[in-house]
Simulated assay, not measured.
Amino acid sequence: MDLNTLREERQKWLTWKNIKPYQDAIKALPVFKDISVSLGDTVEITIPNLSLAEAKQIESAARLMLPWRKGPFKINDLFIDSEWQSQIKYNLLEPHFDLKDKIVGDIGCNNGYYLFRMLTHQPKRLVGFDPSAIYYSQFQLLDHFIRSEIVYELLGVEHVEFYEHKFDILFCLGVLYHRADPVGMLKSLFKGLNKGGELILDTFMIDGDDEMCLTPRDRYSKIPNIYFVPTVKALKNWCYRAGFESVEVLETMVTESNEQRKTEWVNTQSLEDFLDPNDPTKTVEGYPAPKRVYIKAIKK
Rank of each mutant, 00 (worst) to 15 (best):
M1Q: 13
D2F: 04
L3R: 10
R7A: 12
Q11F: 10
Q11W: 09
K12Y: 04
T15S: 14
K20G: 03
K20S: 01
Y22A: 09
Y22L: 01
Q23V: 13
I26R: 07
I26S: 04
L29R: 05
P30T: 08
S36A: 14
G40L: 12
V43F: 06
T46Y: 08
T46L: 10
L50Q: 02
A53D: 15
A53L: 12
E54L: 09
A55N: 11
K56T: 14
Q57K: 12
I58Q: 00
S60H: 13
S60G: 09
A61I: 06
R63E: 10
L66T: 05
K70E: 03
G71F: 01
I75T: 08
N76M: 04
I80A: 09
I80F: 08
W84E: 02
Q85G: 10
S86W: 09
I88Y: 14
K89M: 03
N91Q: 15
H96K: 00
D98H: 14
L99M: 11
V104D: 07
C109G: 11
C109P: 11
Y114T: 04
M118I: 01
M118D: 07
M118V: 00
K124R: 15
R125M: 13
R125H: 13
L126G: 00
A133E: 08
A133M: 03
Y136K: 13
S137T: 00
S137M: 01
Q138D: 00
Q140M: 15
L141Q: 08
L141Y: 07
L142Y: 06
F145P: 01
I146K: 07
I146R: 00
S148A: 10
I150V: 09
Y152T: 07
L155H: 05
F162H: 15
E164N: 01
F167K: 08
F167Q: 02
D168L: 11
L170F: 06
F171H: 01
L173R: 08
H178Y: 02
A180V: 11
A180G: 05
P182T: 11
L189Y: 03
F190R: 05
F190D: 07
N194P: 08
K195Y: 11
L199N: 08
L199F: 00
F204A: 03
D209P: 01
D210Y: 10
C213G: 01
R217W: 01
R217A: 14
R219Y: 12
Y220C: 06
Y220Q: 01
I223M: 12
N225I: 11
Y227N: 10
F228S: 12
F228P: 05
F228V: 10
F228A: 04
V229C: 03
V232Y: 04
C239W: 01
R241W: 03
A242L: 09
A242D: 06
G243T: 04
V247S: 09
E251G: 05
S257Y: 03
N258T: 14
E259K: 05
E259H: 13
T263L: 09
T263S: 12
W265R: 03
W265P: 11
W265C: 02
V266A: 08
N267D: 12
N267W: 05
E272R: 04
F274S: 14
D276Y: 05
P277A: 03
D279A: 02
T281R: 12
K282G: 07
K282L: 13
V284I: 15
P288M: 06
K291W: 06
R292I: 04
Y294L: 01
Y294I: 01
I295G: 02
